[in-house]
Computed example of a mutant assay.
Amino acid sequence: MEMGLVDIKSWIKGHLGSNIKVVEQAGRKRTNEYVGVLVEAFPAVFIVDLSASEQPAHASFTYTKILTEDIQVTFEKRP
């Protein structure tokens, strides 16, 4: 199913407080992986509170990065 920007924003906002994993394409077969909790959803970006062992403590991502497939977002299944 193809999602538009409005659908992506709604999907992200519906998972506030959930565990999240974001895989970012870093070019030439490299990726960066971020694991944490989705804590904020603003009009242009969403904020992930990263696991305690990672620096910095927070990371922000734009919804358009999901749309353009520069990042892949997965949420931990709720019990």
Rank of each mutant, 00 (worst) to 15 (best):
S60Y: 01
K65P: 00
F61E: 01
S18L: 07
P56W: 09
T74R: 05
Y34K: 12
S18K: 13
E24F: 03
Q25R: 07
I47T: 15
Q72W: 01
N32S: 15
Q25P: 02
E33M: 14
V6P: 13
Q72R: 03
A44M: 11
E2D: 07
R78T: 06
I47W: 05
M1Y: 07
Q72K: 03
E76N: 06
A52Y: 08
E40Y: 02
T68Y: 00
W11A: 11
Q55I: 12
T64V: 13
L5Y: 06
S53W: 08
E76D: 09
E2G: 07
E33D: 15
R30M: 15
R30A: 14
T31M: 00
V45A: 04
E33K: 12
V23C: 07
H58D: 03
G36D: 13
G14N: 12
R30S: 14
G4A: 05
T64Y: 04
V23Q: 06
R30V: 14
E54R: 11
A57V: 07
M3D: 04
V37Q: 10
P56V: 15
L16T: 11
S53A: 07
K21Y: 04
I47Q: 13
T68L: 03
H15D: 05
S53T: 12
F46Y: 03
K77F: 01
V6G: 09
